[in-house]
Design a protein around this nucleic acid. Structure first.
Lengths: 366, 366
DNA sequence: CGCTTACCGGTAAGCGCTTACCGGATTATA
DNA sequence: TATAATCCGGTAAGCGCTTACCGGTAAGCG
C-alpha cells in the first residue's frame, strides 16, 4: 500500500446538508430518489449540490450499500512478439470487453479492466485484490485453475469466458461444436478434401479442446485422412501458426489439402507462411479460421471461418454476473450460437462477387 | 441505483481476528505490514487468512484510508461506420490505455475503463460518477470543455491527453510541432513538392489545431502552394479521409502533389479512396500520416508518418496523476518527443529494402 | 373543533477497515 | 530484586454514506 493519504478538504454530505439547511438524511434521500421529499426540500438540496459541485464518495456508498457497482474483467495481455497483422490480437478480447462495458453501463456499473502478463504464474493474489474492489469478476480464457476459481468464488461471483462452469462459477462460451462440425463438413463433404489437419490453439484451452474433438470426430466420420497433435500445435497467435507451417515445410512434410486453424489469428499466420513459400491458398491448400474477427474478410483470399458473436458474448457475461450479484441465481452455463461464414480461403467461389458474402450454412441452437 | 443489496455472509476482519485469537487491529497490521507484530502473531493471522481465504473489502479500506487505489480512464467509443481496416481505430487509444494500465499496476492501482458514446452530449454526470469511484481521472481527447474539466478538477485530480493544461488539470501530449515540421519539410524540401494539402482531424481537437498550424507555417515558409480548410475537413477516421478525397474528385478538383493527413487512420482512408480511382501513391500523389499505428508499416505502400510513443504517453499520464494523488505537485504539462518515420508513401525509396526502415530524420526535445 | 392518520425529515447506528492512544507484559538498568 | 524503558496488541473512534426508527406537523375524520 502506497503512502498517499487524505486527498484534501474533501466535500461531504454534511457540507451539502449544512448549506441547504437540511439534514444529511434528506440530502441522501434526494440524491438517491428514496422516500418522498417535499419539493422545496429537494430544490434546496439540488441547489446546494450544484453550487458545491458535490459528488458522493463511491467508497462510502459502497460500504454502506454493500454494493460497489463495479465489476472486474481480467485477461492476459500480449505474449508472442508482434507479427504482421498481429496488432489485432487485441481485437478478439477487446471486442468482448467492449460488449461487457456497454452492457455494464446500462446497469450503472463500471468496469475495472485488468490485464496480467502473458505467462505470469502467481496471478491469484492479484485477482483476489481486484475481487476485493469489485462486486463480481469476469475472467477470460485460461486465467485460473479450477481450484483458483473455487477460492475466488466464495469472495465474489465469477463468470468465466470460454471455459466451463464449475460448482461455484458460471460460464459463457460459443457453440464450438456445431461451428466446427459445419466447417469440417463443408471441407470434407462439399469440397471433398481427403486430407485435412487441425492446427490447434493453446493445448490447455477448453475452446481449443472442444474444437479439436469435433474436428477429429467429423473428419473420421467422413473417412478423411486427418492430422492433429504434436506437429500441429499452435498457440492462437499468428506467429504460432506461421511457425508450425515453417517447421513442417522445413521437415519436408507434405501438407494436407486443407488446414483448419483454431482461430483467425492462427489462420492469418498460416496464410502468411504459405504465401512466403509460394503455396497458393486455396488452390493448393485451403485454410480456415474461427472467430471471424473484422479483418478476416479483408485477407487475401477472404477467410472462411466461424463467426462468434463476440460483443454479445461480453454482454451476456455481464448479464449473468449481474443477476448473480442481484441475488437471482441465473443459468450457470450459456452457449451462444455461431455461424459458418463461407468466403474464399476454403476454395469456394474465387469470384469475389458470388459466394464471398456471408453464406450461412450452419446456425446452431443454444 | 439498482436494487441489489447485501451480497451474502461477507467475511470480515472480525472473523479473521476471532479465528486467529487476536484483535482486529493485529489482523490489519499484519495485512498491511504496519507496526512490528511478533512472529507468532503474524503466523496465526496468516493462517486464519489463508484458511478463510479472506480478502479485505476495498470499499472499507478506501473509506478508511482516503485512497481507493483506482483511477478512471474515459474515452469515446466507436463512431463512424466501419471501414476497411477501421477495426484498428481502437488501436491508438487502446495502446495508450495499455500503457496506463501497466504503469498503474506497478503502483498497485487499478483502472476503471469507461467509454462514452461517440457523440453523447451530456457526459459530465457520467464522468462525475466515475470520479466518485476513483482517486483521479485520465481523459482522452475531446471529452469535456474547459469548464467541465474545472468542475471535475475540484473533485479529483485530472490529466488530459492531447489537450492543454488548465489551471486545475494537467496534460500530456506529443510534440506535434516538431513532428509536423519535420514531416512537411521532408515533403516540400527533400521531395520539393510544390502543392500540398492538410487533411484535418476533428476541427475541435487541440492536436489537430497544432498540426494544422505548423503545416501552414512550414508550407508557407517553403513557399509551397498549400491547401487547408473546409474542403479538407476530416474527422480522424478512415471514412472521413476517404470522403474528402471522393468529394474533391467528384467536384473535378485537381489534387495536390502531396496530402498530409491528420493521423494514420485518415491516411488509410485516403490511400484507399485514391486506389479506387486508380490514382497511384506515391507516384501521382504522396500521402503521409501521423501516429505510426502498428499497421502503418503494412500498408501498400508503407506509410510515411510521425511516430508518437503511445504506450509511454499512457504511462506518463498515469505517473503525473499518481504524483498529484500522492500530494506532490508535479509538472502540469508534459510534451513527449516524436520521430519522423520515412517509409514509401511519401515517395521515398520505392525499393522496399532500402529506406523502408525507420529512418529518423527528426527527433524533438521536450 | 378534537382526535386519528399520514407524511416528512432528523437522529443515530452501522457498513468493514485503519490507526491513535493506552495499558500490560517484557526486558534492560541499577 | 525494584524501577525505568521498550514493545505489542487491544480498545475505540472515525472515514462518508444509507436507512431504520421515531417525533413533530399537517391533513382527514366525525
Amino acid at each position: 500500500m502506497p503512502e498517499p493519504k487524505r486527498p484534501k478538504g474533501t466535500l461531504t454530505i454534511y457540507d451539502v446538508a449544512g448549506r441547504a439547511g437540511v439534514s444529511i438524511a434528506s440530502v441522501s434521500r434526494v440524491l438517491n430518489g428514496q422516500g418522498s421529499p417535499r419539493a422545496d426540500t429537494r430544490e434546496k438540496v439540488m441547489r446546494a449540490v450544484r453550487e458545491l459541485s458535490f459528488v458522493p464518495d463511491g467508497a462510502a456508498r459502497a460500504l454502506s450499500n454493500g454494493l460497489k457497482e463495479v465489476i472486474g474483467v481480467v485477461f492476459r495481455r500480449g505474449g508472442e512478439a508482434l507479427f504482421e497483422g498481429e496488432d489485432e490480437s487485441l481485437l478478439f478480447m477487446d471486442v468482448i470487453n467492449r460488449g461487457i462495458e456497454v452492457e455494464a453501463q446500462r446497469r450503472g456499473f463500471d468496469v475495472l479492466m485488468s490485464s496480467v502478463g502473458f505467462d505470469d504464474e502467481d496471478v491469484l493474489p492479484r485477482i483476489a485484490a481486484i475481487a476485493g474492489k469489485t462486486d463480481g469478476l469476469i475472467l477470460h480464457d485460461r486465467m485460473l485453475s479450477a481450484v483458483g476459481i473455487a477460492r475466488l468464488a466464495d469472495i465474489v461471483p465469477i463468470v468465466t469466458l470460454a471455459g466451463s462452469p464449475t460448482r461455484a462459477s458460471m460460464n459463457v462460451r460459443c457453440d464450438n461444436e456445431s461451428g466446427m462440425r459445419a466447417l469440417v463438413q463443408h471441407l470434407v463433404i462439399d469440397h471433398a478434401y481427403r486430407s485435412i489437419a487441425y492446427l490447434s490453439g493453446r493445448a490447455d484451452s477448453p475452446d481449443n479442446r472442444a474444437r479439436a474433438k469435433v474436428f477429429e470426430a467429423e473428419a473420421a466420420a467422413a473417412d478423411a485422412d486427418f492430422q492433429v497433435g504434436a506437429p500441429w500445435l499452435g498457440n492462437y497467435s499468428a506467429a504460432g501458426g506461421a511457425n508450425v507451417i515453417a517447421s513442417l515445410l522445413d521437415a519436408g512434410t507434405k501438407l494436407p489439402r486443407a488446414i483448419v486453424c483454431a482461430n483467425d489469428q492462427t489462420a492469418l499466420g498460416v496464410m502468411h507462411a504459405l504465401g512466403r513459400r509460394g503455396i497458393k491458398v486455396p488452390e493448393e491448400v485451403a485454410v480456415t479460421g474461427f472467430d471471424d474477427v473484422p479483418v478476416a474478410r479483408h485477407l487475401h483470399p477472404p477467410l472462411t471461418t466461424v463467426r462468434q458473436p463476440m460483443q454479445e458474448l461480453g454482454a451476456r457475461a455481464f448479464d449473468m454476473l449481474y443477476s448473480r450479484i442481484s441475488a437471482a441465481a441465473g443459468t450457470p452455463d450459456v452457449v451462444l450460437p455461431v455461424q459458418l461464414i463461407v468466403r474464399e480461403s476454403c476454395g469456394c467461389a474465387t469470384n469475389p462477387a458470388s459466394r464471398a458474402g456471408n453464406a450461412s450454412i450452419a446456425r446452431s441452437g443454444t
